[in-house]
């Protein structure tokens, strides 16, 4: 059974969310403000966004 999924949208959702989380962690001094941490958080969330798109339960409508 085929399901319509949104991995590209999931990627960008994770990417933007990761940037937001990184900036908040930086500004509160929770992690050092480095490019390495920015990359880890941003790309990590982007991957999670893709994973979310593939594991999200399919909805039925109409």
């Amino acid at each position: 059974m085929k399901t319509r999924r949104r991995p590209v949208m999931g990627f960008f959702a994770g990417l933007i969310l990761g940037i937001g989380i990184a900036l908040l962690l930086f500004v509160f001094g929770i992690v050092p403000m480095t490019v390495m941490w920015l990359a880890i958080l941003t790309l990590g969330c982007a991957v999670l966004g893709i994973v979310l798109a593939y594991v999200a339960p399919a909805r039925r409508s109409g």
Binding site: R6, M9, A13, L17, L52, S61
Partner: peptide, 21 residues
């Protein structure tokens, strides 16, 4: 950015639909 990212993630969940739909 976090709010926008969460909104897009919600869109991912809402946009995941069974083939019939």
């Amino acid at each position: 950015a976090a709010v926008v990212g969460l909104a897009l993630a919600a869109g991912v969940l809402a946009g995941t639909k069974a083939a019939g739909a």
